[in-house]
Amino acid sequence: MPSRQLSLSPVQETLLLTLYARALDSTAPNPILGDPLAAAVADRIAEDTGYDFAKLKLKPSLVAGTALRAGKLDHVIHQFITTHPDAVVVDLGCGLDTRLARCAPPAGVGWYDVDFPEVTDLRRRYLPDDRSHLVATDVTEPHWARALPHDRPAMIVADGLLPFLPGDSFQTMIRQLTARLPTGELALNGYTRFAAWAMKYHPTIKALGIDAAQGFDDPHEPEHWNAGLTLVAEQLLTRAPEVAAFPQPVRALTRLMARSTAMSRQGTRILHYRF
């Protein structure tokens, strides 16, 4: 019998969506990310709480896209911590992502997982790791960045966070972070305005009652946020070699989108900046 209950807001509940997507990918015949720890965590949550992950009804396109973007962000982080073995990694809106385990940073790296208190409590329960510094906060609140070291190069990652923050709060948060941290990089999965707007009509997001609407079209736009950002790269994931592992017909549709840069930007893209 389930012994615990999950008390999460609709926005917080999206962490279960992405966790389950990575879990499903890990059990696929040709996994893209291959994260068996995600599957183990999802199984424990279902056993402990009775949460029905099947109700999320994740489509193959969402599973493949979630796994691919996670892997690409992992790669950016790995490159950074290889060059800066004394770095700080700041995972914004970390949810129950097992990124720390996947990236396996060297001992000198300080890893900070940032999310709501309710979420960091879940991480303590299901992903205990003494290497992770948990920062329990609403990222739109001011001054929480004071919990971060200010004398080390930093890698900031935001996976799936942008469209769920109200107004210009994402830009404000990035300005505060780059003012606090001396130098580093930012990597996020970017949404165009249309893609962010369309998210609220995705069946799973709609069922959770989330009104997602934040995004930007031009990858150079963050360079005008007064955060000291310079674009390093824009990766259009419709053109990633890993698309070959997508199930059909998702693979064929993704390759069709890849022919157009404008269409590819409506899908998943990884944006990489330096500050």
Rank of each mutant, 00 (worst) to 15 (best):
L73R: 08
H78I: 11
Q79L: 14
K59V: 10
K59L: 11
T82R: 13
H78D: 15
T98F: 08
G95A: 08
H75Y: 11
P85F: 03
L73Q: 13
R69W: 07
D86M: 04
T83R: 14
D91R: 00
H84A: 06
D86W: 02
C94A: 15
L92S: 05
G95K: 04
A64G: 03
A87K: 07
D97N: 10
G93K: 03
H84G: 02
T82D: 14
I77D: 07
R99M: 05
D91C: 01
L73M: 15
D97F: 02
V76N: 13
V90E: 08
R69I: 08
D91K: 00
T98V: 13
V88S: 11
G71L: 12
T82N: 12
T82W: 04
I77F: 06
A64D: 01
A64Q: 00
G95S: 09
T66N: 09
L73C: 12
L62W: 02
G93W: 05
G93H: 01
T83P: 02
L73D: 14
L96H: 07
R99V: 03
P60A: 00
A87G: 04
V90Q: 05
G95W: 01
T82I: 03
K59H: 12
C94D: 06
D74Y: 10
G71F: 09
T83K: 14
R69Y: 09
C94L: 05
V76G: 12
T83M: 12
H84S: 04
V63E: 00
Q79M: 09
V90N: 09
T66P: 01
K72I: 14
A70I: 04
A70S: 15
S61T: 09
L68F: 11
I77Y: 09
S61N: 07
G93D: 03
G65F: 04
T98M: 05
L73N: 12
L62R: 03
F80K: 03
L62N: 02
L68T: 08
L62C: 00
T82K: 13
L92N: 04
G71D: 14
R99K: 09
T82L: 11
Q79G: 15
V88N: 11
L92T: 05
L92H: 05
H78V: 12
G65K: 02
R69N: 08
R99D: 07
V76I: 14
L96A: 09
K59E: 12
A87W: 01
V89P: 04
Q79D: 15
L73A: 11
V63G: 01
D86T: 11
K72N: 13
H78C: 12
D86F: 02
K59Y: 00
D91V: 08
D86R: 07
R69E: 06
V88E: 07
T66I: 03
G71H: 12
G65L: 05
T66K: 00
D91S: 13
A87Y: 04
A70M: 05
D97L: 07
G71I: 04
A64W: 01
G95R: 05
D97V: 01
C94K: 03
A67P: 10
V63N: 00
F80W: 14
H78W: 06
P60C: 02
G71A: 11
I77W: 10
P85M: 06
I81F: 03
A67H: 03
Q79S: 13
T82C: 09
P60H: 02
D86G: 08
T98S: 15
H75V: 11
L68S: 10
T83D: 12
V90P: 08
A67S: 08
D97M: 06
I77C: 11
G93S: 04
A70E: 08
